[in-house]
Nucleic acid binder design. Structure first.
Lengths: 337, 337
DNA sequence: CTGTTAGCGCCTTCAT
DNA sequence: ATGAAGGCGCTAACAG
């Protein structure tokens, strides 16, 4: 196997490497005849341009990177399942823009600060996608400061301008809570995410607003934050249910939280939809197949991914800077509420 | 923002770029003092070596690519969910080897033949991971012929040597079928994958062997192949159940097939575990949360990924060529059987 | 239309 | 221990 470079093609055809380059890139300035020959030989040699050499000239490498923390100890297991789906959909959207997705599960627990600059500056990716956004997120600050091209899936409390796409979790949970109230429930438990995440606060706010809106009291004994796995869920839900006046409904900030809760409640002999109501958030593929099927707030994942990539690509083209999108999720009513 | 190259560091420190390179790469031949200075300045400048320039010299880019077909029309939706999990676990295993995972959802339906050579030869990835293997897989043939470094998750009928990792689906389905038979079932339906996939045949063989082993007849009316979505499942399962002597148990070649089946059966008023038995294959996160929880054959995904990456890395190091691993899955008995 | 030249950022001889 | 020079594969700028 020879080298398979434009030089080899040039030699075979009897032209200069520059002409080969021009022909291969559809740049004018090559006679049709030579262009034809060149393309034929390239085809015959099974030639593929070296993307590495190309991007060394300052061109793009046609790759977007998604850097995430894979094994964050307090990472909601719930989000983990959501992000598994998110990743594949993101990759598909990338593909429609001719980009590949580079997955980098960060190794440092500190939100992958080490890797962020490295991947971008090392030229391995043209832009960055960030998720799991915290209210004050050092990664976002870093990227803004260094003017690196990125897009965030989620808002922060940071005032500086940057681009993001987010789902209106406040509205979503507000809607879910109202739905449950309209079913006649008055004592409503809330199962929240770890409050360092922006979306955790956002979703809690929706719960809060719905209760206020209906003039229901905010009872701290019904509210819990930061449950991230089934074991913790067991403790918390047991406690919630063993109160003198336990909640008759639960609004969970994620499908997995809801599923854990249903599982614990089942051990108390309680069946969702019959003995209590519950709603989730995400609409994982799983949600339609639980028993009973889980009512939930569906994240518009496809839209989210489309917007993320579209904005990031425009940023790479220098066409836009600090724009954002807030997408509205959708209440899906199933048997659990 | 300046260029941030070794040249800039060299100028600041007052040495040659070569010395900077040596210092940065821990190559001997730099005085400790200069080395210290160089590293200090690099740190201060927030310098990251350009991976692109590096790999132009023939070094690795530290990336493995997973090329897959995202929107294959006949792609079992079942596998889709499995591969979503597979991807994230694969990425994590890559990370432990210092590699990133490049996701390329192929755009051509033809098994991504176009992209395979391109990605590898373009230097964007050092090696390739292939899944969704078919019995005669043109991608595998191509990669073997061109001596490109790859590893397959799955066997083929191809005789030429190449490396793969696979799960013993024959054994798995054999075990599941025996389990169901041992529960007293005699009429056992089989729900198979599209037979162009090696694993589809493999799993069917397990069913076949179990029936033979117990001297049960092979009834074609109980056997179906190639169901890939819920709509098809409805038709097929309806037909299976409306026979004079319908199966009293089902062995499905994937969890999703099993779940679809349970869903259709429920509409016939039949509850798994009570009115009939059913087993799946994969052990998706979903499986533990269906109603009733699904008995299934658990794919050792973590082991699979570990072996895939380990073998591929050894291949890249020139240490091994056509080795393979066959992993044994595990029967997980839950409420559905 | 075509070829030559220079250089992207880095590493690796080869001298010194 | 250090620096100068060449080249990885490709493309852009400049000549002809």
């Amino acid at each position: 196997m020879s080298k398979r470079t434009i030089i080899e093609i040039a030699e075979r055809v009897g032209v200069s490497p520059a002409s080969v380059s021009r022909a291969l890139n559809n740049v004018p300035g090559v006679s049709p005849e030579k262009r034809r020959q060149i393309l034929a030989v390239a085809e015959e040699l099974n030639y593929h341009p070296n993307a590495i050499a190309r991007s060394l000239q300052g061109r793009r490498i046609n790759t977007l990177a998604y850097i995430y923390v894979a094994d964050m100890p307090d990472r909601p297991a719930t989000d983990l399942f959501f992000f598994r789906d998110f990743i594949t959909i993101l990759a598909e959207r990338c593909a429609t823009y001719g980009m590949d997705l580079l997955l980098h599960p960060a190794t440092d627990g500190d939100g992958s600060m080490n890797d962020i600059g490295r991947i971008l500056r090392s030229g391995r990716a043209d832009g960055l996608i960030l998720a799991d956004i915290r209210r004050v997120d050092p990664r976002v600050l870093y990227l803004i400061e260094h003017q690196l091209p990125f897009i965030a899936f989620g808002r922060t409390d940071i005032r500086k301008p940057y681009s993001y796409v987010d789902v209106d979790g406040e509205w979503g949970i507000y809607t879910a809570t109202c739905h449950v109230i309209s079913r006649g429930h008055q004592r409503i438990g809330f199962l929240g995410l770890p409050i360092e995440y922006t979306c955790a606060v956002d979703r809690y706010d929706g719960y809060h607003r719905a209760l206020r809106h209906y003039g229901l009291p905010i009872n701290p004994a019904y509210i819990t934050h930061g449950v991230t796995n089934e074991t913790q869920a067991r403790v918390v839900v047991d406690r919630l249910l063993s109160q003198p006046e336990p909640p008759t409904a639960f609004v969970a900030a994620s499908d997995m939280l809801a599923i854990y809760t249903m599982s614990v409640a089942a051990q108390h002999g309680m069946l969702a939809g019959r003995d209590y109501a519950i709603t989730g958030f995400d609409d994982l593929p799983l949600a339609a197949h639980t028993n009973p099927p889980l009512s939930t707030i569906r994240q518009p994942v496809h839209q989210v991914c489309e917007e993320l990539i579209a904005r990031l690509m425009r940023r790479l083209d220098g066409e836009e800077h600090a724009q954002h999108t807030l997408l509205r999720p959708e209440l899906v009513i199933r048997g659990s509420s």
